[in-house]
Every structure is written in C-alpha cells, then in structure tokens.
C-alpha cells in the first residue's frame, strides 16, 4: 500500500469550513453523521435506493451514501441542518411540511426537503406531476405522498418572487 488509508480533508458544511481525517472507504453520509455530528442526514438503505440521505453538493441534490467522504474535499455541502435561515425560523418548505402534516416518523423528511429545495430552485412553478416525478427517488412509508405534494405546491407559491 503506497498511500495512507485515511485522508485529511477540508470542506464547507452549511456555510462553515470543516476539517476531518477520514478513512478513504467511509461514505460522506457516515462522515457527516459520525465525524461532524450532523445526524439529520438519515441512512436508510445505504445503497442509493431510499433517498433519505440526500444532501446538496454545490447546490445539487445527491445521495450522501453514494459518495466517499474524501470526494467532498473542497466542495460545499448543505445538509438538513443548514436549510433553516435562523434557529428561530424554518425554511418555507419546512413550514409548509408542518402545516400540511407532510411527515409522521420523519425518517425520509431530510432527504425530501433537500431534494425539493433544489427542485423548486430549478422549477419554481411545478405541476403536481412534476413534483411526484422529482420525489420518485425518495421513499416515504408513513404519510404517503399526498400531503408532501400539497406542502410542496404551497411552498413553491411562497418561494416564488411576488409580482
């Protein structure tokens, strides 16, 4: 073995520069949870199927379980902990989820919210069908998707620039 099996990396997480030393085989999802204490990123399947671990990498929604932590070196990561603008105020999408009871157990919620934040940024005025397609990679086993779609439609209206 010519190179060390751990690496020291720097990355930005929720706007803050962070440094960790991580085994090269560790996934980004595990590093966020165990090294940085950001346990809001949930791990369901660890194989890219369930979408619970979705985070934003440079603004794009990706599976944190399908990236190695070392690959995040130099990138900007946003996790569920970074969505709310302040400790006392939730993101409009989070507010809409509350109002519509778009979660029960909450396991899938971080992945849905990060996915939908990116989606609403790209598609500010989505149809219901477009929302359902956008969250097709996020499995929810409690509420079903009706309330999630309703909350997203409302959040989209809140986030759109008012004429």
């Amino acid at each position: 073995m010519t190179e060390p099996q751990t690496r020291h990396i720097t990355l930005r997480v929720n706007g803050q520069a962070r440094e960790i030393t991580t085994p090269v085989r560790k996934t980004l999802a595990d590093a966020l949870r165990t090294d940085l204490g950001l346990t809001g990123t949930h791990l369901g399947c660890e194989t890219g199927l369930c979408g619970a671990c979705t985070i934003l990498v440079d603004g794009r929604a990706m599976r944190a379980c399908l990236m190695l932590a070392v690959q995040a070196e130099g990138h900007a990561i946003t996790t569920i902990e970074g969505l709310a603008p302040s400790p006392s105020e939730l993101h409009p999408l989070q507010q809409a989820f509350c109002r519509h009871h778009a979660l029960q157990c909450g396991f899938c919620t971080p992945g849905l919210l990060t996915t939908l934040v990116e989606f609403l940024h790209d598609v500010p005025n989505p149809s219901e069908a477009e929302i359902r397609e956008a969250i097709s990679g996020n499995l929810c086993r409690c509420t079903g998707y009706d309330t999630i779609v309703a909350a997203t439609l409302e959040a989209a209206a809140m986030l759109r620039p008012q004429p």
Partner: peptide, 9 residues
C-alpha cells in the same frame, strides 16, 4: 435514468 439525485452525480 434513475432519479434527479442520481442524474446529478
């Protein structure tokens, strides 16, 4: 192909 999150990567 897959989903938005997998097409992004």
């Amino acid at each position: 192909i897959g989903h938005r999150q997998t097409r992004n990567r």
